[in-house]
């Protein structure tokens, strides 16, 4: 990177600045900066999944049909109790092995399977290697499942907070059950759900620090690596333990993300509370 700068500019900047410029633009640091997109993608897509799972979970849970209500209740109550780390490890692995099992039944010959008895996968052809982005997708789905249970709880509560009289009025005017849901119930639900959903979003942001568990070199892992005492064969000790510095940068990054999120949620709340006579909500 440093080679791209013209010589006179380098001379003007002086050796110290050039050194630090070079240091912060070396390959590892570029990878560090680029890895931010894993975190942001995981948070956004994870939140989108969580919202979808949340809406579906809430729909099941509040359904009148017991065959739908039961799975909804189990989902909301059980999954909320499972540590996210555990689920993060469990779900992608289970998914991978299930895929391998399906593939094995299609591609493995009996001879090949007999040769590798007791091993996984049953034959080499059935082995599946996921790319980083495929792992990222799995991570987003995992986040979606775990935090979807929280979102479902929030949304179900918000659905119950919508004044019953307004739903009844909609029915009295001949709106179908689906129209009542989409035209009155859901639009009014958001204002009650947003505070809870903003909590869930913050939890999702925090949970993105688990990405390294899935072999994704995310900002947390790279900060750890870059900050660790650094030796090189030619130059000896480049620097000592600088991890605190890198962690501080992460800290500031997450605080910045929180700040931006707060702004976005404030705007969403203003939008959702138009006309709603709710304490503290902007009109």
């Amino acid at each position: 990177m440093l080679d791209l700068l013209p010589e006179p500019l380098k001379a003007w900047l002086g050796p110290d600045v050039t050194f630090w410029l070079g240091y912060f633009t070396n390959g590892k640091h570029i990878a560090f900066f680029v890895s931010v997109h894993y975190t942001v993608l995981a948070a956004l897509l994870g939140a989108a999944c969580a919202l979808v799972f949340g809406l579906m979970g809430a729909a099941l849970w509040t359904s009148r049909n017991p065959w739908l209500r039961w799975p909804g209740a189990v989902y909301v109550n059980m999954v909320r109790g499972v540590p996210d780390v555990l689920f993060f490890l469990f779900f992608p692995l289970a998914f991978e092995q299930a895929m391998e099992w399906m593939r094995a039944s299609a591609v493995c010959t009996p001879e090949a399977a007999a040769e590798r008895a007791g091993q996984w996968p049953p034959c080499p052809d059935a082995n599946i290697f996921f790319s980083t982005y495929e792992y990222l997708a799995l991570a987003c789905v995992s986040l979606g499942i775990v935090y979807g249970a929280f979102a479902a709880n929030v949304i179900a509560g918000a659905m119950r907070s919508v004044p019953r009289g307004q739903l009844e009025a909609a029915r009295a005017f001949g709106l179908s059950a689906r129209q009542v849901l989409w035209r009155v119930h859901l639009p009014q639900m958001w204002i009650y759900a947003l505070p809870g959903l903003s909590n869930v979003w913050m939890l999702i942001i925090k949970a993105t620090s688990l990405l390294s568990l899935l072999q994704i070199a995310d900002i947390v892992q790279l900060a750890n690596r870059l900050g660790a005492p650094n030796f090189s064969r030619s130059a000896g000790l480049v620097h000592g333990d600088w991890r605190w510095g890198y962690y501080l940068v992460l800290l500031v990054f997450y605080i910045g993300l929180t700040f931006v999120s707060e702004r976005v949620f404030a705007a969403l709340t203003r939008r959702a509370s138009r006309g709603m006579a709710i304490e503290g909500a902007a009109r």
Partner: peptide
């Protein structure tokens, strides 16, 4: 209680 739809 009127029951006007408050989001409209």
């Amino acid at each position: 209680q009127f029951n006007l739809w408050s989001h409209l």
